[in-house]
Design a protein around this nucleic acid. Structure first.
Lengths: 214, 214, 214, 214
DNA sequence: CATGAATGAGGTTTCATTCAT
DNA sequence: TATGAATGAAACCTCATTCAT
């Protein structure tokens, strides 16, 4: 976590205000685009004065950093929950549980996920790296999950990196292609069908997918 | 095709200049972001004067429209080539040929594809619709291809809309997640592995996938 | 009073600044013409920054509206003073008193009156209407004053609308033909001679004009 | 007549084109204001190319000069016609004939007259002088007409300069207050009533005004 | 700690004028 | 003589940031 300029030493207050800023800004940016909201407007929606906003950030661009940082944390937490939620079970079950949590997170923080696509080109190289690392962590997690399933014989042999990447792509799609998907799928249906399709793809032939779709 | 203001009646010239503008602008935007290039800079890279630029567009925002229109046309053309390139062959072969063309287009026009994610939030509702429609056309194309494979018994029963959507997600990923993928895959390898994985997922069990992976 | 964009909620401040703007802008425009002053120059003469100016107006054109509105108010106030200043007296006396106030107003706000001629063609239809209405109010006032003089027998029969209109034309002339008139007349002399000439024209023959000219 | 840059030596052609320019420009300016028409638009309405326009003028501002020059000539011609039309008759008749011609000219060239008010503030000092002189010539003409009537005893004693000025003001009003006057008067009615009112004002008491109004 | 008026650099856009064709 | 694409200075306006209160 890089240091952002503050005029206050009250860490609690600063964190609270920054959380507020992150959420409102993400919402506004998701609706209008980063460059189409100005600090005046943002401060007003926050119930702050223009000057007040600058007590908790050093520059408008800092907001981008705060948001991607928040998003990165979300991902980390989702992964942590994935790990604990199905600990000790088989690879298929762990994959199924994990996808559910992952897609729920995407649904709940859709704006944050879309935001990343939107501002990627506006980010400094340093900040882009944060995004890259967060996404890489997810791919790595799924890659090792898939790899363990292959080793245990539960999954047949395939390229786990590619499939892990596809999982991320499919999860992101729920956020940035929602305009299309929501016409045909609920999150539940999407989650189940995708999970089934994925398991059909990678499960060893002798083992039938459990198939509780729809 | 909406009408964009011009000061010239020479359609040929206007088209030529606009093509030039679209290409250069896309490149610049892909590098720096739409709001981080100014019209002066853009005009200079085009070898034009600031005023000259405005002989072929009505406003900076019009450039966004020109680009998404261009991208939409690319997609349409890629689909048309897909159709003709493997006409009369089986569903698997047509899918394989089609993916190859699609991913090549994405590779060649990666900037354009990334551009769309970047500016989506800055677009007017009217312009967003163009993007939606172009993407829908692609999904529809793959959906009907998959459906015909199911009918012929070549593919086993599955949700063709979902898989068609996944294809688009995976193709887009080559553009907007290139920073990750290019570390591990060439386009060829990516194309072949994804095709194989896809066919593994949907091909009827009695038929073995042809499996000519890179 | 149409709403003009402000960035401040302090009505007092806004009014004060707009008054300042109206006065300075009128002076500058009277000297150089609306299109020959730029916002930078205007802001500087106001002792403001360019941006500061735009805290109190929404666009340069709004200044035109503010000025004609101000001018319209001046006229209304001058008429109100005319009415009260000679209440209860005969038509001749009321006419004389009224002309004095009217011409004094024109003299004091000559720039405003000239401004109206100058920008008339640049005004929106909506804003032109404000000017028309203000001038109509003056004509109406004199028309009814003349009519009451006819009814009382103090004035001989004539077309009161035409004469009322001439009064306005003659008063305006003091503003927009000042370059000529000031060579030969002081305001006092102009006022008195015009009043005498007017009364000579409309007073019933038996009643001699009071004739305190010069 | 100041020299305006030309690219042609064909005086006839140049004059013809300039006449065309003057008329069209006046019309456009009367409708939209000098600064709201650009040379592109003007050239197009003239059926010329932008460059072509500049073969007959040296700058956009030259158009203003050409127009006021044209207007000044109109006035001179109208006066000349006034003089000849009623030569040898009495002052009243000459005044009546003269006013008729003057107001007809104003009516026919209303745009030109309004134009003068509009651009006065944009004119160079040199060009303003042309306008002043043209208007002074008219005042002078009426002043001497009135003076001769006083000398002959036809008009009673009054300030002929003031009344001459009023005549000009009243004639101008037909152009720039037409929006009001046309609601109540035809040109004929206006001319006759004004003439009668004027003669009522200045004719010696023993002589009754001839009074052939509307 | 909060406010919001002020700043002024920098953005987009216009347009009178030129000049190669 | 005519054209109209090109120029580039200058216009209007915005907005992130500061700072006196």
């Amino acid at each position: 976590m890089r240091k952002i300029r503050t005029f206050s030493n009250d860490t609690e207050l600063v964190n609270e205000r920054r959380n507020h800023i992150v959420k409102k800004a993400t919402e506004l940016i998701a609706r209008k685009g980063y460059n189409n909201i100005n600090t005046r407007e943002l401060a007003m929606s926050l119930g702050m004065s223009t000057g007040g906003l600058y007590h908790y950030i050093g520059s408008k661009e800092d907001i981008l950093y705060l948001i991607i940082n928040f998003t990165s944390d979300l991902t980390t937490q989702a992964l942590a929950r994935s790990v604990t939620s199905s600990d000790g079970q088989g690879a298929s079950s762990r994959l199924r549980a994990s996808l559910k949590i992952y897609l729920e997170t995407v649904e709940n923080y859709r704006d944050f996920h879309n935001f990343v696509n939107h501002v990627m080109l506006s980010l400094s190289v340093r900040d882009r790296k944060i995004v890259y690392e967060a996404e890489s962590r997810v791919v790595d997690y799924y890659e090792s999950l898939l790899r363990s399933g292959i080793e245990s014989g539960e999954f047949r042999k395939h390229d786990p990196k590619l499939i892990a990447h596809n999982i991320v792509a499919i999860a992101n799609a729920w956020a940035n292609r929602g305009w299309y998907l929501k016409k045909y799928y609920t999150l539940d249906k999407y989650t189940n069908e995708q999970t089934d399709a994925l398991l059909a793809q990678i499960t060893s032939q002798e083992k039938k997918p459990s198939g509780n779709s729809g």
